[in-house]
Nucleic acid binder design. Structure first.
Lengths: 335, 335
DNA sequence: TTTATTTACGAAATCGTTTTCGCATTACTG
DNA sequence: CAGTAATGCGAAAACGATTTCGTAAATAAA
């Protein structure tokens, strides 16, 4: 059995309420009594029961982080930032993975309506095309902050990177390096982040008066083997692109592997550029040109905003989107 | 305000206890009443307050995962496995990162003494040299399962991989490929996992009658720049090794970078082998030979055991260590 | 000295569930 | 038909902390 306040009260011949007040340093309690209580609490190794506190105080000092996956440097780094921000302020972090399933995401958000968490950080799944499940928890008074994979139709704070611009610049870069037939690999048509990148890509093509190839935008799936087949087909087709932009990190591997298998040289035959936070990008064969996202910073900033909101009384999150820029790092795969 | 049982009771002209029993499908309640209650609950979108339940039932359906870091494929994959196991059984996962600090780890475990979590999965920090902080939570009745970075002096369940054997085999592999002057990069002398790998390495050297070089075992730190300097010094010294074993994933980057900078060719000048779960290992320049650990499986197995223990009444965890083997995958960096 | 005010503490309600009793009905048994 | 057993529900006591309110004593103000 754990030590409770009641037990402390007995030991010290004080009332339960006095103990509680003493431990929260209330002005109602004399310095001397506080001393005695604190000492005894340490002596008995008293730890307040968080569930009792949460029940009474209707706040849990816990936030939820909802992510599509974790085996992606971006999300790992983001969690790192989130955990750092949370632990600094004494908050706890619950992790939930949707594995890109909207149904799972929906079920999780439903579960959050019960008050398990004080707030939510979310990066939606690739299948997420609507927002009612998110709006519902917000309506229940639980603040939500988006990061990276945001949804614009929800009026709350969002952290993102300059997807359109980075993609535009990445495309320009490939064009400057001589590509005339680009392909763009995306993972969803529902994600804003994905669409912004597509649009940046397309706008750059347009601005440079490049015709879009048939192969221009490839919709990848959530199935790694399938993606690999598609990419291999793309690279062995007649219209074989001379440049590929992978809009997410996990599409890098199949591209490189397909090139190896097809004996295509990077960058001579195909230039490759990826949105990625892989630490090993400079070590790849050849070193990979990346659009590197501010993963850690986005996670930390999003968490900090959410926590600030939680710590105030009735503060409501702004609905503005904060943009933290990505960096294009040119390496050999596009030279 | 949230919908509570009391509210349901009012709406249906029933007592609070009846509602509760109906919702838990108690035999005391008639089928008809159950139907009414369930229907009303859905209608009002009733969600039981988890903190009230936890307080009453003294279990939280939550486990803690304590890790040194997350920007490491091994731990990302392990979390993946853990989350999968937990969500299957309706458990929630709290994530805590020690950043290799023993003090943080200790503080976290102290915090767990209050009943926030029903059980703990832990991979200890590189600084962790004692176990009293872990033994204390166990003594408080909170089960702990180790994975990967285990401590043998705690009598509880542990999941690990065949570190000694993998390291032994990895070393043999390098010797077979002609190396005569190996170096081994480790991160801690306190971690069993690290020591096992060192011992496997040393035993292989001994079995093959190889003298240990001066440079044999290098203690790396938690500081990336410092490690880089050390590795560079190692590779530019007189006793330059012709083979390097990096005992953790994050030491791969500095080795490759140092080789690049020093214009050393892998594998001709130096062969490189790493304990790593990097998906990009086959894409590196050159492709990296790895000892690949069963990260996902270890995470999932450890979580499943912990959860099974939590779901039984008074079950106590065995103290035996389960070993899930790693795989040596030979690639060009050691050919 | 009397009244007002502070100081220091305790009793009890509360948060929302779960669970143990107890108490009526109704159904069954001998 | 008396007595036992099952059925269906409600009252109330937990779980452990916080908070409001009350009150006695001590101090200050009149």
């Amino acid at each position: 059995m754990s030590i409770t306040i009641k037990r402390l009260a007995q030991e010290l011949n004080l009332s339960v309420s006095t103990i509680s007040k003493a431990l929260t340093d209330s002005h109602e309690i004399s310095a001397e009594t506080k001393q005695r209580v604190i000492q005894k609490a340490q002596e008995l190794n008293y730890k307040p029961n968080p569930y009792a506190s949460s029940l009474r105080g209707r706040k849990s000092k816990t936030i939820a982080v909802v992510l599509p996956e974790i085996a992606d440097s971006f999300f790992s780094l983001a969690i790192n930032g989130i955990e750092e921000a949370a632990s600094e302020k004494g908050y706890h972090v619950l992790i939930y993975l949707t594995h890109e399933s909207f149904l799972k995401e929906e079920a999780m958000l439903k579960d959050f309506q019960n008050g398990r968490v004080d707030g939510i950080l979310i990066s939606v799944s690739r299948e997420t095309a609507g927002s009612t499940h998110i709006q519902e928890v917000i309506d229940r008074g639980i603040p939500v902050v988006f990061f990276d994979r945001i949804r614009e139709d929800v009026s709350t704070a969002k952290f993102t990177t300059n997807d359109y611009e980075s993609s535009y610049n990445a495309t320009l870069h490939l064009l400057e390096k001589g590509c005339r037939n680009l392909s763009f690999l995306c993972i969803s048509r529902d994600l804003l982040i994905s669409n912004s990148r597509i649009q940046g890509y397309q706008q750059a093509l347009k601005d440079k008066n490049m015709p879009e190839a048939e192969t221009a935008v490839i919709n990848c799936t959530n199935n790694a083997e399938e993606n690999y087949r598609m990419i291999k087909a793309l690279l062995s087709g007649k219209q074989r692109p001379d440049g590929i932009i992978a809009s997410v990190e996990k599409l890098t591997n199949p591209v490189y592997l397909a090139c190896q298998e097809l004996q295509l040289r990077i960058p001579q035959d195909v230039k490759v550029l990826s949105f990625s936070n892989l630490e090993t990008a400079p070590l790849l064969n050849p070193a990979l040109t990346t659009v590197t996202q501010p993963a850690f910073d986005m996670g930390k900033a999003a968490a900090n905003l959410l926590l600030k909101c939680l710590q105030k009384k009735h503060s409501i999150l702004g609905k503005d989107t904060q943009v933290i820029p990505s960096t294009l790092i040119v390496r050999q795969s596009t030279v």
